[in-house]
Amino acid sequence: MPRYALLLLLALAGCARDPVGLPLTTERNASPPKLQYLGVGGYLMHWRGEGLLIAPSFSNPSFLGLPPLRVKADEATIDARMPPADDVSMLLIGHAHYDHLLDVPRVMQKQAPNAIAYGSATAGHILRAVLPAERIVNAEPAMANVKEAGETGPAAQPGTWLYSRDRRFRAMPIQSMHAPHFAGITFLRGSYDQDLKELPTAVWNWKEGQTLAWLVDLLDEAGKPVYRIHYQDSASTPPYGFPPILEDGKAIDVEILCVGSWNQVQHYPDALLKVSRPRLVVLGHWEDFFGNDPQRPQTIRLLDEQGMVERTRAALPEGTPVVMPVPFSEVALPATP
Rank of each mutant, 00 (worst) to 15 (best):
D253F: 08
V203H: 14
S191N: 07
Y227I: 00
P243E: 05
P225T: 01
W204A: 14
G241W: 10
G190V: 03
K207R: 15
W161Q: 08
A235R: 00
I174P: 00
I252F: 12
L212K: 03
A235P: 00
Y231N: 12
H178E: 12
D233K: 01
D220T: 06
G223S: 11
L246H: 05
G209C: 03
R228I: 11
W206Y: 08
D253R: 01
D248L: 15
R170F: 04
T160R: 15
G223Y: 07
Q194F: 13
W161M: 07
L215N: 08
F169C: 03
T186Y: 00
A179W: 04
A222Y: 09
P173K: 13
G209M: 03
I245T: 15
L257T: 09
G241N: 10
C258H: 11
T201Y: 13
Y192P: 08
V203C: 11
L196Y: 04
Q210G: 00
P243T: 06
H230E: 06
W161D: 02
E208S: 15
S236M: 07
A222I: 07
T237C: 06
E221C: 06
W214F: 05
E221I: 12
S261K: 13
V254L: 03
Y240S: 09
A171H: 01
F169V: 02
P225V: 01
Q210H: 05
V203R: 03
T186I: 04
D193A: 14
L212E: 02
V203T: 13
W161Y: 10
Y240G: 02
P173Q: 10
I229A: 05
P238A: 10
Q210A: 04
V203Y: 12
V203M: 10
L215A: 12
A171F: 01
S164V: 02
D233R: 05
S261Q: 10
P225H: 06
V259Q: 05
K250Q: 13
F169W: 07
L212N: 01
R165M: 06
L188M: 14
D193W: 14
S261G: 06
P180S: 12
Q210N: 09
V259C: 14
S176K: 07
W206C: 04
L215P: 00
Q194R: 15
L215E: 14
F182G: 08
L199E: 05
P180E: 05
W206D: 01
A171T: 02
R189A: 03
R189D: 02
L162M: 12
R165P: 02
T160F: 11
F242Y: 13
H181K: 02
E255H: 11
D220I: 06
E208K: 10
H178C: 11
E247L: 13
Q194E: 15
A213I: 07
G223N: 11
E247Q: 15
S261T: 09
R167W: 03
M177Q: 13
G190K: 00
R228C: 09
Q175K: 10
I229S: 10
K197I: 09
A235Y: 00
L212A: 04
Y163R: 08
R170E: 06
H178R: 13
